[in-house]
Each structure stands twice: as structure tokens, then as C-alpha cells.
Design a protein around this nucleic acid. Structure first.
Lengths: 361, 361
DNA sequence: CTGTTAGCGCATTCAA
DNA sequence: TTGAATGCGCTAACAG
């Protein structure tokens, strides 16, 4: 190994508290007290000296030792439950990406570290929490029943995002959405536009419980009008893109006038597919989404959808988690963040001329 | 504390190697050997017994102790350099999201853990690598000069993604893109469609060096035709959305016939803005993007752009990093992944009728 | 094939 | 106000 390399290695050697103490001519305990702002336990003079050496040596603690010493890592685990499929990852979904961005920002800001993982295996989550002594956990789309197992197996504060639970008489810290109301309002709107023959497309396997609740909102709106929305109007989209495109094409032979998607992305995909086939939207089909992601206003026609504040969901989840981590007692409530119907241009009034799209940037 | 709670806590208590050893009636070393598959050092009989107890106790190692014992954490740090701005995060960008998804998959698959962080501070990266004894580092969009500082300060294998370097006579492990060729081909195409008055919009502050290289490709194509593309055609987009929209609107008073964006998202944003103002694209402006993200084929007109395989970039970066982590000697090369011009419907031939859009899903 | 031992870096008693 | 001693859980060198 050439000398220049070993010189670099020397720079790299990480100073420890012990070394800092030696340089400062004090004990490791004193250095530790300085590091922790234990001003009462150290004189200003030594404090200053130690601080100078600390800065000069570019001291950085060894988290391994810290974990070992008091079993917390300052790591917040962010886990997205999903079945792995083909070449699409769940992280790249615009919803996921937006909320992950918000979480990263807040975790960083709070002085914690973020460990990201996707899995469909609760045992893996438990293992992760234990081996890393995670300080907190944010769990997305946990299937019913699984949340209980996780909470019972670990000692870590947990906040769920977008989860629905079995009737096990137990409460969870959850940040969710007014899914029922979202479905209800969208259905009311579609009904008001004259649509009766509606198909609802679930969010592939991504939102256990939630899609059903949204569909429940649709049904409620229908029954309020004395109409029925049969269960076979709830359709699971295939995971495979080609299969989805085939499904969209086959809809052209059907009688539905409106297609309600439980995610903007698939709505956009379907619209593009129809347009590529020369089928005009919303002339042939009215199409609606859910979430109001960043792209729903960029596609044409602009997508009528159910708006939610995605980044805010992440911020709320983290604020809650931080409180739990501080040991505050927070009542377990299933928070349902508000939704708002966002009417744009992808739904047409039946038996009426097309509406003029809105203007303005 | 009620008894039921303490019962749960008991379940939670994490077994250590020592406890496992006690239960199995062997020494901690033997357990450790079993855990590490050191079959040569332990008899099949004891191995089986220990394994049974291990599984039964749901043993999970304490990473703190492991880090302390041999200074590697199995964590791969993923760092995205960026200036924080307003309410937009870099993680939610479709490019980032796609590559993060691929990285998460590969890191997980390789048995490592992923720590995600955005920052604009190289000192923070160094600190992170040291305090966590990171096994590897993936760095995005590192500004020129900063990469060297980081590499010189730590002992961790580093792979850069989409970085350009100063002429410091040094090589880096970088997975980048044929940016110059991408710009060149796009410009040639625009020229072939009769465009001469072109504006190039840089990727906000996100891609130091890269945007300039893409613009360099544009200039080369122009000069090959004996034309000049002056430096004032290179425009930095404002970070603030409202300001960007204002900029787009002002373009209507200009003479440019084509707007070349260095990111699909902004191209899509601009197109939508124009459409909202009642301005037809590509009639009034031809618009092009870069990256070919998931949405570029969903918007209307479908976006003509420069395609890159984003997920593959992540996979290649991680494959390289894993080799480096294994101690393999890999020559430092600045890999430039191929680009491909993706001609769709957002560019029109000047002085010619609009082209018919392609059909098919 | 198995066990003993020392030490990784830090926080935290307890003594001085 | 300061320091010495102990232990967190694991690995690895060494001894048996």
C-alpha cells in the first residue's frame, strides 16, 4: 500500500471520547459530560478546552456504542407494506414519494435517522425494530390483524398510516383519511352528473381495507338515491401493466359510463390508454381518481379526483410519533384527515354538451 | 403498571447470545459460530439444538454490539444533495422516487439496510458515515469538488450517481448518463423539425454540471449546422412554482419556437400552464423533456423526451457499490448510461401541418 | 469440537 | 468539579 494511502487512512481514524480526553488531559467522563451539555458537572474552563478539541478533532460519536449503552438508536423505521411485483416498486408511486419526502424532512429536522424498508412480512418488521433498537416506527398499509402482532412483539412507539383494523376491540395510533366520505362525495357528484352505471377500481393490493371503505361511500350515495351499486362493481386491477391495459380496452364493450379509480395514477393510465385508441375522454367514459397527486392536474383532461394533503399526512404522523417517543400519553385515535372533492374536466354530464374546461395557469 | 402490561414487556425482552447459550447449555462462542454458519467449528448435534432454541426464542442480534465489535453496520447510506426549498422535496420527484425504489429493492435483497437522507452539507455526510460506520454510500448530484472532500474524509466505499467533477486529475466511481449525447440528439431533432429559436431550461439547482453538459450537446448540434446557440439561451428555472408559471406566461411574448426542458416534470408543468391559458401545444411551442419519466407518456400531447432507464441506473450503482464493499478492485470509471431519443407528439414541424399522433395503448 | 477471555466506545453509577 | 469502574452484546484470538 503506497504511503499516500496510509496517510489518508490516518486522517480517517475516528477519534473516540477516550482520545479526546487524553488530549484534553481530562477523563472520558468529563468529555461525555461536555458532550451532553451537563454544564453543572464541569467547569467552564475545562468545558471550553474540551469543546475546542472536540471540534478540532471532528469528533463523531459511535452509534454502535450508544445503542449498546442505552438501547436506543435515534433511528425511525419507515416501513411500507407491499407485495413485491415485477418492475414496479411502491416507493415510486407519487403518493409514496410525496409522503416519504415529508417524512425524511421531519425526521431529519427532529435529529433522527430514517431507515426505509418495504416488506410484506411482519416478522421482518419486528426483527428490524429489535436488532436496531428503533426509537419509532411508521407503518404504511398494514393489513388487518398484522398491526396487533407487531405492537405486541415490540416495545417501540408505532404510528400507522392508512390502515384499517379488524374489530378486535383495540385502538391504534393511525393517521388515515376520510375514505368513506371521499367515496361518498365522488359518487354523489357522479350521480349528479347523471351517471348510474359505474365501475370502481381498487388500488391493486396496496390499500387493504381502504378501497372497500371508499367503495362503501359510493354505495351509501347510491342507496340514498334509492339505487343499488352491486358488489361486482368493485374491481381489482391486475398488478401487471399489460393486463391492466387489456382490461381497459375490454371496458369499451361494456355499458359503464363512469370509471372511478381509487388512485390517480391508474386513472391517468386508463385515460392515456383510451386516448391512444382514439377514444375521447370524458366523451366515451367519465373517469375519476383519488388522492389528487401532483400529476392529476397536468394530464388532459385534468382529472376530477378526491383531494388529500399527502405531505401533511406525513407531517402529522411524525409529530404524533415524536410525542409518543417522548413518552407523552396520547390517546389512541384513528385520525381521518379531511378530503375535498376536486372537480376538474374528466367527468361529463350525461345527455348534455361537454362542459368548457376552466382557464388560468 | 397492570400485570398484563408487564406480561407484554416480558415477551418483549430480547434474548441475547448469552441467554441462548445458557438455555442450550453451551458457550456464547458456540452460539455465535452457529449463527455465522461456522459449521466446521461445531458438531451437527449441538448445531441443531442451538438452532432450535434460536428459532424458538426469536433471536435477533443487537446491531449496536455488532457495530461496536467490528465497525460495520450493514447500513448503506443513500444521500441526495439538494438545497431544501419550500414545500417541494427532492424525494418526491419522479426520477428520485423511481431510483430510490430500485435502490431499496436491491439493498434489501443484498441483506443490507437503507438509511435515507437529503442534505446540502458534505460535513453531514462525513459525520453520518462515521457515526454509523456505514458500509457503503450512494451519493446523488454531489456538487463539483465536494465528492473529493467526502472521499478523503472517510473510509467507506462511495458510488456517485449523476455527478460531474472538477478537473482535479482524479477518477470517481460514477453512474451517470450520456447527457451530452442526449442534448445533442434532441437538438438535432429539433433542428430537423425546423426549429432555430430554442430556449433551454435547466433542472433548477438539482443537477450541478449535468444541465450544462446537456446544453453543450445542444450547442454542438447547432454548430454542426453552422448555427450558434448563445449562452443566454440557458435559463435557470425558479424554484418557486408561482414564479415558474409567471416565466412560462412571459414566454408567450418571446420569439422562441421550442422549449427544451432538462426534466420531464417541468415540461409537463409548462404544457399544462399553456393549455390552461388556451395556448395549444405543440402549435404555439414545441416542448421537450428529459428522463422519460412514468408520466411523460400520460400527458397530452405525449412528451417528446430523452429516455433513460432510471431503475437500471439504481441497480447498476448498487451492483458496483456491493463489489467495492466486497473489497474487489474495480477501476474507477465514469459510466455514462445510454440515452435514446423518444419522439412523441410534443414537437411540431415548423411550416408544416401537425403530425398525426401515434395509435395503440 | 468447545470454552474462556478481552475489548470494541459510551453512559452511568459511585467515590473522591 | 472530576475520575475510576462497570456493563451493554457481540466477535475473535486463543487455549483446551
Amino acid at each position: 500500500m503506497p504511503p499516500c494511502i496510509s496517510a489518508i487512512r490516518t486522517i480517517v481514524t475516528m477519534p473516540t471520547i477516550k482520545e479526546i480526553a487524553r488530549k484534553a488531559g481530562v477523563s472520558p467522563t468529563t468529555v461525555s459530560n461536555v458532550l451532553h451539555g451537563n454544564t453543572a458537572r464541569v467547569s467552564p474552563a475545562t468545558r471550553e478546552k474540551v469543546e475546542a478539541i472536540l471540534a478540532d478533532a471532528n469528533y463523531a460519536p459511535n452509534m454502535g456504542a450508544i445503542i449498546l449503552a442505552h438501547s436506543n438508536s435515534r433511528i425511525i423505521g419507515v416501513i411500507m407494506f407491499n407485495e413485491p411485483r415485477g418492475d414496479e416498486t411502491i416507493v415510486e408511486d407519487p403518493f409514496s414519494a410525496t409522503i416519504l419526502g415529508a417524512l425524511e424532512l421531519e425526521i431529519h429536522r427532529a435529529g433522527y435517522f430514517m431507515m426505509l424498508r418495504t416488506t410484506s412480512d411482519e416478522a421482518e418488521v419486528v426483527r428490524l425494530a429489535r436488532t436496531w433498537k428503533l426509537d419509532g416506527l411508521v407503518l404504511f398499509w398494514v393489513p388487518p390483524g398484522t398491526g396487533r402482532i407487531i405492537e405486541d412483539s415490540i416495545d417501540t412507539p408505532v404510528v400507522f398510516i392508512d390502515c384499517y383494523y379488524p374489530d378486535d376491540g383495540r385502538a391504534y395510533h393511525n393517521i388515515g383519511l376520510e375514505d368513506e366520505r371521499g367515496g361518498y362525495e365522488m359518487a354523489r357528484y357522479l350521480l349528479s352528473m347523471g351517471h348510474r352505471d359505474i365501475l370502481f377500481f381498487a388500488n391493486v393490493p396496496r390499500y387493504p381495507g381502504g378501497d372497500e371503505v371508499r367503495f362503501g361511500g359510493f354505495r351509501r350515495a347510491f342507496s340514498e338515491k334509492g339505487l343499488d351499486l352491486p358488489g361486482d362493481r368493485f374491481i381489482h386491477l391486475p398488478r401487471d401493466r399489460e393486463e391492466r391495459l387489456g382490461l381497459y380496452e375490454r371496458l369499451l364493450d361494456g355499458s359503464a359510463t363512469a370509471l372511478a379509480f381509487s388512485a390517480d395514477f391508474y386513472a391517468a393510465e386508463a385515460i392515456a390508454c383510451f386516448q391512444n385508441l382514439g377514444v375521447e375522454i370524458p366523451d366515451r367514459f367519465s373517469v375519476t381518481g383519488f388522492d389528487d397527486n401532483k400529476f392529476s392536474r397536468l394530464i388532459r383532461p385534468r382529472l376530477t379526483t378526491v383531494h388529500q394533503d399527502i405531505a401533511d399526512k406525513g407531517r402529522m404522523a411524525l409529530a404524533l410519533l415524536l410525542r409518543l417517543m417522548r413518552g407523552e400519553h396520547v390517546p389512541k385515535t384513528d385520525t381521518r384527515l379531511p378530503v375535498r372533492l376536486e372537480i376538474r374536466d374528466s367527468v361529463r354530464k350525461l345527455d348534455a354538451p361537454e362542459s368548457e374546461p376552466a382557464r388560468g395557469c
